[in-house]
Amino acid sequence: MKHQTDTRETVIAVKGLCKSFGSHRVLDHFDLTLQRGESLVVLGRSGSGKSVLIKCIIGLIRPDHGKITVLDENVLTLDHKAMDKMRMKVGFLFQSNALYDSMTVRENLEFPLRRHAFRMGQQEVDDLVMEALKNVGLEHTVDMMPVELSGGMRKRIALARTLILKPEIILYDEPTTGLDPITSREIINLINTIGEKYHTASIIITHDMKCVQLTAQRVAMLIDGRCYATGTYDALKNNPDEKINLFFQ
């Protein structure tokens, strides 16, 4: 199910990223690159700073030092307008789904479309909403409220909302955590299908080894705030290093 990259073009480059909360240093000179169409897994223990890393990439958290380039834009120097423009091309699937509780599924999906200052007719918006829901197989939930959905369905709706702007890059924050093995398998399949269908590059954050195995073309290990090692799943699995080995037991 792993799709192949065709062109080698860097879409995300992170260099020397540092972030501390108080005296607690979460990221310590972290480096990472992502190629167009590539799917990269960032593997790390709970609390190692994975969410902090991708929130820095999308500009939600301001790092202390370092350089982040997304689609040839320097994220740290962008103004509001340019930042919004960049964020239209980068989808973000939140760890806690972040569906708006007070809105229906339809309104949830329409939100990014309407807010990003597009001038779209109602018909066009409806079509995009239905297409996004179809991609995740949940067309019948369009008028339901998020509370009426199960955890797996909510994750899929959140994924549909991420996809609705047809992003070039998608950042997944622990897409399978808290789901049963069958549902998480469905989500993994969706991630792979979407990658193939729209040729998106993706960074997938996880500590679920099944997810790593099935989605990763390349794995980066976040240990002690640094990018400790990168390589394919198989290469890392056979790596004798103790800290790396811990994940594969």
Binding site: R87, V90, F94, S96, A98, Y100, S102, F111
Partner: peptide, 21 residues
């Protein structure tokens, strides 16, 4: 309570990445 739960479930972050202040 509303903004608090929006904050902890990352809905406020989600708004920000959706072109909304």
């Amino acid at each position: 309570a509303e903004l608090g739960s929006m904050k902890v479930t990352e809905q406020i972050d989600a708004m920000e990445v959706s072109g909304t202040n």
